[in-house]
Write a protein that binds this DNA or RNA. Structure first.
Lengths: 141, 141
DNA sequence: GTTTCTGCAAAACCTTTGCAGCTAG
DNA sequence: CTAGCTGCAAAGGTTTTGCAGAAAC
């Protein structure tokens, strides 16, 4: 379970009403959201947060390694809460759901390919795009 | 060897002075460049090209599958000439050099991981970051 | 009481678009 | 001659920044 207050502490941020609202919304959503979308979501509900605050909070979370960024649409960036540490993603192109894949079988491949060309690996990144079980069924049904 | 005129023909674009200058600069560079950077590069040299033209050309190339986009800095997109078809990249974080990896051993891993979770794979994307042989030697020497 | 955070509005930025003039076929 | 391309400048959008007031410690 995701605890907003805990995440803020881990990021070295003061727990404020706005930040907790932002984190709660992100946790509830579970898939990447843009700053703009988050701002709208919160503005309508009770605990609002200014656009600048949303941007600043998301940036801080990403910098602390508690959120990952995804390219979204044209020139927009979406954020999603992620456990720190290395992992990959399975992304549904239909509903936007994102599943984290903890194990990393790409590791060996990356090291081999890189070494063969004299590269020294510092990191790698791999994501799989497709349609999730729910969306596949819906489309078929 | 990369032939600007040929690439333009493959993309269904008319060969003009500006476009050939853009392609020549991209080929010369060999690593991802942003539209802004290209514009500056060309504006200083002889064969200039307007910013709008640079953007339009890069967009057309990407759409034709002859260039790939890379996230660059904050909210910027960089482009690099790439052979069409599926491949991965080895990216040097020090000098920016990019090497294409044609073979795709990730394919199997992607399919297995996805199927295990009920996903239907449509595509995947994997890049390796590190330092290339030249930069490693420079750092050591 | 300090330090940090928020909100607003302005600014900065990259990118796209409209349009008149030019160029390739 | 016609269709397509270029350049400029204006517009569109997202993201960042400055600053006074508010909130957390």
């Amino acid at each position: 379970m995701i605890d907003p207050a805990d995440l803020l502490a881990r990021a070295g941020l003061r727990p404020t009403r706005q930040r907790e609202a932002i984190l709660a919304a992100m946790a509830r959503r579970g898939r990447p959201v843009t700053a703009q979308a988050l701002h709208l979501l919160l503005h309508r509900g009770a605990g609002g947060a200014g656009l600048a605050t949303v941007y600043r909070t998301l940036q801080a979370l990403a910098q602390a390694g508690l959120a990952r960024t995804f390219p979204a649409g044209e020139g927009e960036v979406a954020y999603k809460l992620c456990e720190p540490g290395h992992h990959h993603h399975l992304i549904c192109e239909s509903c936007g759901r994102v599943v984290e894949i903890p194990s990393c079988e790409v590791e060996g491949w990356a090291a081999e390919v890189a070494n063969r060309r004299g590269f020294e690996v510092s990191s790698h990144q791999a994501d799989i795009y497709g349609r999730c079980d729910v969306c596949v069924r819906e489309e078929a049904g």
